[in-house]
Structure formats: C-alpha cells, structure tokens
Computed example of a mutant assay.
Amino acid sequence: MNARERGPRVSAAAVIRHRLFWPAAVLVLLLLANVFFTPGFLSVELKDGHLYGSLIDIARFGAPLILVAIGMTLVIATGGIDLSVGSVVAISGALSCLWITGLEDQQSVTGVLTAVGVALGLALFLGLCNGVLVAGIGIQPIIATLILMVAGRGLAQLITDGQILTVNSAPYKLIGGGYWLTLPFGVLIVLAVLGITAFLTRRMALGLLIESVGGNAVASRLAGIRSRGLIVAVYAFCALCAGIAGLMISSNVSSADGNNAGLWIELDAILAVVIGGTSLAGGRFSLGGTVLGALVIQTLTTTIYSIGIPPETTLLFKALVVTAVCLLQSPAFREKALNRRRRRPQAAPASADPKVKVPA
C-alpha cells in the first residue's frame, strides 16, 4: 500500500479518535431524528426582525446550561466539583426579582441594572466562599459545595418567602427572553462569556496553569504556581456563570421560584463537561467540547418532547443516550465492541530442519 492510499485512512482514524467527534456525531444524529418526526425542524425564519425556529429555541433554552457548564469545566479542570450551582441559580434569580418588585418603576433601566449587579455580586461572594472552603481550609470540593447546595436552596426560598415572585419589567425580560441583532439576547451573552473565557484560557497562560493544578497540585505549587488563589478564582467564576444563568431563567419566565429554579442543573452541567471530553480527574479541558455536550443535552430534551416520549420515561431515555455517548467516547470500549484488540507478537517457530540447532 503506497502513501497515497494509506493517507486518507490514517486521517479518518484520527478524526474518529478526536474527542469532539462523537459528541458532534450524536448531536447531528439527534437533529436528523427530529427532522424525521418534524420535517421543518431545521428551518429558520426571520419574522419582525427576529430569528425563529427549533434550532434557535435549542440555543436559547440551552444558554443557561452552557453558561453553568463553562464554569463547571474550569472547576473540574482543577480536580474539583461544584454541586452548588443550582442553588446559586435560584438565589440569583430570587434576589434580582425581589429587588425589582421593590422598585417604584419596574421599567427603570438603572433599577434593573442595580438588581442585576446585586444578584451577581452575591453569586460571586458565594463562589468565593466555596473557593475558600476548598483551597483555604482544605475541605473536599464535593463536601464544601454540598453545604451551599443545601443551604443555598433554603436561602433562595427565604428570599422569596416560599412564594413565586413575579415581575413585569421589559428591561429585565431582555436578559433571557429578548432579542438583539435578530438573535436571542441570552445567546449573545453566552457567546461573549465563551469568547472571554477562551481568550483568557487559550491565548494566555491561565489555561495552562489551571491544567497544571488539576494534573498535579503538589508539583504546581513547588513550581511556584499559586494554586490556592487560582482555585478560589475558578470557583468564583463558576458561581458567577451560575448567577448569570439564574438571571436568564428568571427573566425568561418573568418570575423567580426558589424551590425549582436551577433544580438539578448541576448534574446536567457535569454531564455536559464529561460528554465534551474533560476528565473528572482534572487536567486538560475542552471548552468547545463542553458547549457540544450542553447542546447534546438540550437537543435531547427537545427531541424527547417532539417525538412524544411519555414523561414517565424521560429521565430514563436521557440517561440511556448519555451513557451511550460516554461509551462511544471510550477507546477501550470501542476496541472491545469492534474486536480490535491488539495482538501480542508470537514467538518464532522452531526450525523444521533437524540439522539446525536451536539454542536453548
């Protein structure tokens, strides 16, 4: 076989081995499955200066999950985990809506910006608390964030007094339910956060430092990296992303529900990170893979509703698809499934000529 014949096969194998191949393939398959049940699923229309369509809806409704997953990616890259993002989502939405309900004019842009600033400030503070518990005191990440996961949900219900707060503010509605430049405003926020994060982690040394801390924290500290400050900053950023997601969710429905807002979004975010190819053990991470993983989860949710799967089996169907994606990403599983185990080299057979002596 010459080099020209061998080249395309090698390149195709490299594409299949790429960590983003299987999430992208599953996303395409889900979209095609929707086309089979809904012929106009991929169509996008421009009405009244806004883009409409199922693809736009997937991006708009998946924006909060993408934001939370971006923050979760950096936390997992340091070898940690953050289970409190769902509670931070609820707290952020509850505090902003409570502030807006106390305004004399809910249409005031200044008042809405103040509410947004206060909510994000509290989210940032909660993230700093998580980081201090993990990096400063030395509590295991799953325990430190579990404290806020439980207490934060109670704090959100305390802010709303156990009720659903409703607001009627056009400026606030823009965050999660409005459009700008024909696109949903939430999608533009996600693109801005993703662009800033990618610039800081891939164009600067910050990403390498995060990966080094996640790969070997002791060696990183001995090399002069201030791992504690870096871990605190990562947890604060994750909480900030969750706070923005909370604003989106509450803005989209013009209300705040301290009990159900952001419920179990931390699990979907972790799944999105894992589907995107980032290891839970820490180290190397992929922001593009995380975005693909979040889109897979949101598309899967849309598919479940569009093809009429019974609500009782929704979580089971979702778990099966996610499990299939994770198995497809595993090289060991693919080798076993395709019977491509590496063969050990066999010993050379003894000579059949009796005159030839084989050394002992």
Rank of each mutant, 00 (worst) to 15 (best):
A3Y: 05
G7A: 13
I16S: 02
W22C: 01
A25N: 06
V26I: 12
V28W: 05
L30F: 04
L30R: 13
L32E: 07
V35K: 02
E45K: 15
D48T: 08
D57W: 14
A59I: 11
V85Y: 10
G93L: 05
S96E: 07
T101Y: 00
Q107C: 08
V109D: 03
V112A: 01
V112G: 00
V118K: 09
G121V: 13
A123H: 09
L124K: 14
L124P: 04
F125Y: 13
F125K: 15
L133P: 00
G138A: 06
G138M: 15
I142R: 13
I147H: 03
V150W: 11
R153E: 02
L155K: 14
I159Y: 09
G162L: 05
V167W: 00
V167N: 01
N168L: 08
N168P: 02
G177N: 10
V187W: 12
L188D: 06
L191P: 08
T197H: 02
A198Y: 11
R202P: 09
L206I: 13
L209T: 08
S212L: 10
G214E: 12
A219P: 04
G224W: 14
I225H: 07
R228V: 01
G229C: 00
V234Q: 07
F237R: 11
L240Q: 03
G243T: 03
G243R: 08
A245N: 05
A256N: 02
W264V: 14
I275E: 06
F285K: 15
L292N: 10
L295G: 02
L295S: 04
I304P: 00
P310H: 02
L320T: 07
V322N: 01
V325T: 01
Q329V: 08
F333Y: 11
K336N: 12
R341A: 11
R342G: 02
R342I: 11
P349H: 06
A350D: 04
S351K: 09
A352Q: 05
D353H: 08
